[in-house]
Design a protein around this nucleic acid. Structure first.
Lengths: 138, 138
DNA sequence: GTCTAACTGAAAACGGTTATCATTTCGAAA
DNA sequence: TTTCGAAATGATAACCGTTTTCAGTTAGAC
């Protein structure tokens, strides 16, 4: 009877490191497919399945933010903050900024309770055009 | 050279009426597939393609609200209000209520502008548990 | 070095949505 | 009422992102 490594621990793999590095290197939301293409292009051969698996686990662990685009694609971004927060995403280049939302939580709670709802959560995404893209337009 | 009916006009069809009726009859968000199944079950034979086409056009016309669930399914609901508004959706039964959002718009604009973003739009969904479902729990 | 659970990835399955295209239907004009 | 073309329909296939499968590989504890 030999001792076992603690079940549930994650192992350090080349692919896992590459995926986290790719996420950290980007200030904007990226799709699994984009990250996969980027890794392959950079010589980091990695299966698409593996990319999906790591992103999913990172999201479960709360290490990345998940955003669903209006078109339905799921995007991932490395989390700067542990706190509950929201994003302002540039419609053109995808760059995003984080913001906290105390007023927003208050608003959601107040409105929900006044309508008889409890256990309130909210999903908010703000879209706009960032300063650089606006400048590039003209 | 014969005169033509105005291009772009919509024609009144049995299927179109059935789809609108199904939407009007429900207080909660429904998926295209659900509506299709409901029509078929009710003897209103209608193609799935046609359901998608009508829902899409209604959404384009602003006649229905569109909501993307966290799981990715697109849901549709008849619009009570023409104004910009948001929904509070019951996590358990899907029932939804509408609410306006002047503070929310202000918040989104203010935060976005302070970060250099313009042409701001926002997507907000609030989820909770409605009074009936809460009562049914215990 | 040994061993095994964790990880990998090619290929297939999945599921919702959209495109294709031959057929049907609405409705304006004659 | 009949005609006729644009619009609508719907069965089928294509699409596309994501998940599952499963045989093979690898990290890392001992």
């Amino acid at each position: 009877m030999t001792a076992r490594p603690p079940a549930g621990a994650h192992r350090a793999t080349r692919q896992g490191r590459a995926i986290v590095a790719a996420l950290r290197a980007s200030p904007s939301f990226r799709s699994a497919q984009e990250i996969h293409a980027e890794l392959c292009a950079g010589g980091q051969k990695t299966g698409l399945t593996t990319v999906y698996r790591h992103l999913q686990r990172l999201a479960d662990d709360g290490a990345v933010d998940v955003l669903r685009q209006p078109e339905g694609d799921v995007m991932y971004r490395y989390c700067a903050s542990d706190e509950h927060h929201h994003h302002i995403v540039c419609r053109e280049c995808g760059r995003s900024a984080e913001t906290d939302c105390p007023e927003l939580s208050d608003w959601a709670d107040r409105v929900a309770h006044s309508l008889g709802y409890s256990d309130v959560s909210h999903a908010v995404e703000v879209f706009g055009v960032c300063a650089d893209c606006r400048a590039a337009r003209r």
